[in-house]
Every structure is written in structure tokens, then in C-alpha cells.
């Protein structure tokens, strides 16, 4: 009879072995400063029944735009939501390996600490049904900031940064839900940068918007890159090519390729990446 424990041990050993041989991307790109590093990360849904992320090793570089692309269900959104531990809210999740935020494992950080440093913009614009002012001051107020002058300054700067100030300065006390879709999404970005985070995670931020609003958001991302690190999940390969510095290509829960965006689209290293780019499958 086979000993099941022995079998498990072998897997563990194999993993340790993998860990030793995996090459951190920072060695390939020595100029970049690393903010997030993902090491041998595994993620499961439904108490381990669904293996969503398989042995991911990845690094996110400071003040760069990293795009996650790949077919639906490849785990790119899952990984994104792991960065600010939003996946912790899902019942029956299980993870192995670790994600380091500036060298600290994120599981040792308080979620509130982590999430105030790692902002998130969602697929659907989701402003709170309260005034624009209160939408932006929501985060700072939760952290205990009460000074009216400072709050005013934050509101002005955040709205200015996303280019919304001129458009809404007359209606700052109106409900955030009264804006158009594109404006709502920019309000959500403003709400996010009001916390002055290090990183902004964007989960398909333009998929619910029209082309003009999409262009505005893309412009905004290019501008925000100077101050913030951005990770963006997108279905749109052209968008990834237009705005990102680095591209990570996922398939079936595995990281297939991580590369500079121009290299990724011009000379993909992997056959699967090439097939995906050329539209052999989607």
C-alpha cells in the first residue's frame, strides 16, 4: 500500500526545489524597484476544489504600469484581488506561498493598513450614493482625518489629478451617482488616490465605458504613472499595448510570460503568447 504522507512530502520537496531555481524578474530588470513580489503563490476556491492560480512568481515594479492579460478565467483578476486581500472575503478560499509588499508578507499586515496603501478601482463604476465630496473624503475620514481644511485640500487635489475638478466643481455636493459613467469611474479613481496609495489596482476599469471615456481613463493612467504604481487587468490587448510598461500573460491559472510590453508584443518568448496575440485563440 502506498503511504499518502510520503507522496505529500515529495510535493513539498519539489516545491522547495522550484523555489530555489525560479528567477526573480528583478534580476532581469535590475533598474526597477520592486513593490510587490509574488513567490510560489497558489490560490484555490471552494475549499481547494478549484485551483485558480498555479505557482505564480511575479514582481510588480514601482511607478510602472503592469498589465495582466489573458483569456477569461485565467486567474488575472484573482491575482489582482490577492494584492489587497479582497479575496479573503470569499468563503472557502485557500492560499499557499506568499506575496511580499515591500519585503513584508501581506498576510502579516492588517487589512486596513494594506488596503489604505493598495487602492482598487473596480470594473463597474461604483461611487457611493452620497455627495462627490463625501465620496472622496470617505477613505480619509475612515482613517480618522477630521480637519476640514485638509479634507478640502484632498478633495481638490484628487479631483484635479483625475481631471474632474473643472467638470464637477459646481456640483461637488451633488450625488456621485448623478455623474456619467466615465465621470463616475474617474471619481472612483479620485476616491482611491485620496488615500495617497502606493499602488492602484485596476480591474478592467474601462470595460463598462464608451470609447471616449475609455481614452480619457487611459490618458489618466499614463499621467498617474508618474506618481503611482499601477496594475491593470484588461481584456483589451491594444489597451495593454498602449498604456503598460510591463505585461504579464496568464493562461489557465499559470503565468505564461512576463516581459516588457514592447518586447512582449513584438517578439513573445512563448509560443502560447504568440498564439494569443495573433488571435489564434481568445
Amino acid at each position: 500500500m502506498k503511504n499518502p504522507f510520503k507522496f505529500k512530502k515529495e510535493i513539498v520537496n519539489e516545491k522547495l526545489f522550484n523555489n530555489d531555481t525560479s528567477l526573480p524578474h528583478s534580476q532581469e530588470y535590475p533598474d526597477e524597484e520592486v513593490i510587490f513580489s509574488v513567490k510560489n503563490f497558489q490560490f484555490y476556491y471552494d475549499n481547494g476544489a478549484k485551483h485558480a492560480l498555479k505557482d505564480i512568481n511575479l514582481e510588480i515594479f514601482k511607478r510602472k504600469v503592469t498589465a495582466f492579460i489573458g483569456p477569461s478565467g485565467c486567474g488575472k483578476s484573482t491575482l489582482l484581488r490577492c494584492f489587497n486581500r479582497m479575496n479573503d472575503l470569499i468563503d472557502g478560499n485557500k492560499k499557499e506561498g506568499e506575496i511580499l509588499y515591500k519585503g513584508t508578507p501581506i498576510d502579516t499586515l492588517n487589512t486596513i493598513q494594506l488596503r489604505s496603501k493598495v487602492g482598487m478601482v473596480f470594473q463597474q463604476p461604483n461611487p457611493f450614493p452620497m455627495s462627490i465630496y463625501n465620496n472622496i473624503t470617505y477613505g480619509p475620514k475612515c482613517q480618522g482625518l477630521r480637519n476640514k481644511k485638509e479634507l478640502d485640500k484632498i478633495v481638490y487635489e484628487s479631483l484635479n489629478d483625475v481631471g474632474l475638478y473643472e467638470e464637477v466643481k459646481e456640483q461637488i455636493s451633488h450625488s456621485g451617482t448623478s455623474l456619467s459613467g466615465g465621470q463616475q469611474q474617474r471619481l472612483c479613481i479620485a476616491r482611491c488616490i485620496a488615500m495617497s496609495p502606493d499602488i492602484i489596482l485596476m480591474d478592467e476599469p474601462t470595460s463598462a465605458l464608451d470609447p471616449i471615456a475609455t481614452l480619457k481613463i487611459e490618458e489618466l493612467i499614463r499621467k498617474l504613472k508618474e506618481k503611482y504604481t499601477i496594475v491593470i487587468v484588461t481584456h483589451n490587448m491594444q489597451q495593454a499595448a498602449r498604456i503598460s510598461d510591463y505585461t504579464a500573460f496568464f493562461m489557465l491559472g499559470e503565468l505564461i510570460e512576463f516581459n516588457k510590453t514592447e518586447d512582449f508584443f513584438a517578439h513573445p518568448k512563448n509560443k502560447k503568447s504568440e498564439d494569443y496575440i495573433t488571435g489564434k485563440f481568445s
Binding site: G119, M120, F122, N126, P129, C142, C192, M195
Partner: peptide, 17 residues
């Protein structure tokens, strides 16, 4: 909407808030 609650939590608000 679940997304509204997610947005609040993602902004660093606690469950109570």
C-alpha cells in the same frame, strides 16, 4: 450592491465603518 461594500472595504474602511 456587493460592489459598493467591496469599494468601501478596498478604501481601508473596517467592517464596522
Amino acid at each position: 450592491p456587493k460592489s459598493m461594500i467591496s469599494a468601501s472595504l478596498a478604501l481601508g474602511a473596517s467592517n464596522t465603518e
